[in-house]
Lab assay of single mutants.
Amino acid sequence: MQRVNMIMAESPGLITICLLGYLLSAECTVFLDHENANKILNRPKRYNSGKLEEFVQGNLERECMEEKCSFEEAREVFENTERTTEFWKQYVDGDQCESNPCLNGGSCKDDINSYECWCPFGFEGKNCELDVTCNIKNGRCEQFCKNSADNKVVCSCTEGYRLAENQKSCEPAVPFPCGRVSVSQTSKLTRAETVFPDVDYVNSTEAETILDNITQSTQSFNDFTRVVGGEDAKPGQFPWQVVLNGKVDAFCGGSIVNEKWIVTAAHCVETGVKITVVAGEHNIEETEHTEQKRNVIRIIPHHNYNAAINKYNHDIALLELDEPLVLNSYVTPICIADKEYTNIFLKFGSGYVSGWGRVFHKGRSALVLQYLRVPLVDRATCLRSTKFTIYNNMFCAGFHEGGRDSCQGDSGGPHVTEVEGTSFLTGIISWGEECAMKGKYGIYTKVSRYVNWIKEKTKLT
């Protein structure tokens, strides 16, 4: 034993070699072989497995989906700052455009905790909710729209109204504003409101030439003092309507412009014939205590009207009353817009006519005020429907199939267009061939041609 100890002390290297040989010859039971080890760690190889990531292109799944990435790591994937920024906006807080917040056709661009709407022409605001041009839906104005110097929408209202708090709607500024039905039992019968379409306001006024200088022999019209197929109006439903009495009662109609003036057809009036105007009328054979009678003290036909040349060209006249009318729910003026808007309103496509005229061709006159909704007829169809001249200051309205029309005794009465609950004068009943005849239409004086003249002559002093 002493000898062994001496050998170990003198030859430590020998001992180490012996131990190493023993270990190498022993069977290893701690580690699995290569094949079995792979069965336990069965993990798919990654895209760049075996390579240094710093030297390969980034992978979106590896960089940002398996674990949260930084902007720089995302930049490695896209290799483009702009594309990385677009991805980053949604990656950080989701897609803010998912709810489609942009209105009126706006395009949404996502941002971090926010979004941006790219608005089409005519709109602005956070969600493109603000109209900035009158060309689109009248700028959301209830009545009139004008573009300011910086191309912003400025709404306005006709006389007797003021802008509401929203700067879009119009509200009454006087007790009985024009064009409004205020009798409670008839307010439910107000005709369907007309909503502004998209309009090209630059070209809204037709490029028409008034044929002022045409000389033409007097034409022989049949029954051209021209509501057939209409309905009984309720008291106060058309408070701007008046009836004219002269040699015979209810020979023509008219509309209240203001307390002192009536507008009617020029062919209705004769110099030297006494005319009485009755406002607030409903049943011409009954006294309903809503009527107001006034005498006409002055007749002003349009300066281009000449019955000797043509009885229905420039067929418009103004009547001055001896005493002002007292405005109330049964006696209310009709609204008159400017030339541009009167023309736009007419193009809405349908209007209402009213009167006490004959209820059928050569038949009896109506006792109760009649009204009828009539569609506008395109000019080409209008011209083809008659052998008589249709001037540019006239328009056609009615039904091709016949059966409904204005008729004798309705002449001078109103053709009105309702705009968001307020009625505007767009025409004056003038003439036609018979009444409600198939293929024939009622012919009306186009008020847009005469609004400046009306307003100039009827100013209240």
Rank of each mutant, 00 (worst) to 15 (best):
F224H: 10
E54P: 10
W431V: 14
K362E: 12
T81S: 08
P301R: 10
R384N: 15
L244F: 06
L19C: 08
P175Y: 05
N127E: 04
F55M: 15
P172M: 06
E159S: 09
E285L: 15
V273D: 08
E420N: 09
E35G: 12
E10F: 13
C28Y: 02
H314E: 03
P235M: 08
I40T: 15
S255L: 04
N151L: 09
G403M: 14
E286Y: 10
A164R: 08
G363Q: 11
R83P: 12
C102Y: 00
K339V: 10
A149R: 11
D200V: 13
G427E: 01
N48K: 10
K51S: 13
K89N: 13
L425C: 00
D232T: 11
I309G: 08
D110V: 05
V263W: 02
N258F: 02
L244K: 01
S217E: 12
P101W: 02
L163Y: 01
A366M: 08
V4Q: 09
F121M: 06
G105W: 03
T426S: 02
N306P: 02
K339H: 10
T133L: 07
S169F: 06
D212S: 10
C155D: 00
T81Q: 15
I309Q: 13
L321T: 02
K68Y: 09
T84H: 07
G355D: 02
Y305H: 05
N222Q: 11
Y441V: 13
D232N: 14
K89C: 04
K293E: 10
N104D: 00
K446W: 01
A26M: 05
P375D: 12
G398P: 03
W356F: 11
D212K: 07
C97S: 01
E73M: 04
I443S: 03
L130E: 12
P375F: 10
G21T: 15
C117I: 00
V374H: 02
I40D: 15
K146I: 10
A149F: 10
L425A: 00
D33N: 07
Q237T: 08
V296P: 03
T215C: 04
L367R: 15
N310E: 06
S385R: 11
E54S: 10
G363K: 14
A26G: 12
T461L: 07
V331R: 01
Q219P: 13
P120E: 04
V183K: 10
P12A: 15
E72W: 05
Q241H: 14
A207S: 11
H289S: 14
F399Q: 11
K455I: 06
N203A: 11
V331H: 01
A366V: 06
V199M: 11
T342S: 13
M437P: 07
T271K: 11
H303L: 05
